[in-house]
Nucleic acid binder design. Structure first.
Lengths: 104, 104
DNA sequence: TCTTGATATAGTTATATCACTATATTCCTA
DNA sequence: TAGGAATATAGTGATATAACTATATCAAGA
């Protein structure tokens, strides 16, 4: 038997799938949106998110779309409003990382 | 007193500082490097990292530099070898996120 | 000092992302 | 059904990142 360290690395397939998702979250405004939604605890409209993030509507919508495309958020239309919610709980862990390790 | 929800959001300054660091980690090969270093538990040379990651030397060196620039890794030269170590423990949390939530 | 193994950097082209502006769509209500 | 509020998308130029190849630097030993 050859000497061989057992590494048990996360497989590349997973890394390749996960990396772009994290990458997309790792954007100041998108993090702010996610932070707002996570602390808010309830689905929020675009307008509410705009106010909390102090950014233009078009920009917010753009970012929401990116996050929705990555299945980080889900959207639900009710009348003329669209409510966004965090769909992926890993977001919470990532935010927790940031809160705890500002040194990051 | 006006009705006002206390949100306690992570401030933008922090988000702007942290986002690019996470962004840089969120790359398949760089995640693999970090995963390898974290499970290896000891400082590793470029060659060892190359082998573990099955990638060209120049590419690995490039990635190592990016991670070092962001202070995610530190490097220590010993003779003609350079040993890399994880400098930022938040990496471990991020990797943990990935391990637990492959659904991310 | 010449060579060789170990590591780092430069240069390049293709592609992705950013921020921003303008415009479109959707739905409600008068 | 026309207008307005809420939301989404298109288009654009500037900048950043990716992957890759070639080359440079550094240190040890013959």
């Amino acid at each position: 038997m050859l000497k061989q360290k057992q590494h048990n690395l996360i497989d590349m397939e997973t890394l390749e799938r996960v990396a772009p998702v994290i990458r997309n979250m790792a954007h100041p405004l998108r993090l702010r949106i996610l932070d707002f939604l996570s602390t808010s605890g309830e689905p929020c409209t675009v307008t509410k998110i705009m106010e909390a993030c102090e950014a233009e509507q078009a920009i917010i919508s753009q970012q929401l779309r990116i996050l929705k495309d990555q299945r980080v958020l889900t959207a639900k239309r009710e009348g003329s409003f669209v409510y966004y919610t965090i769909a992926d709980k890993s977001v919470l862990m990532l935010l927790e990382c940031i809160r705890q390790h500002h040194t990051l």
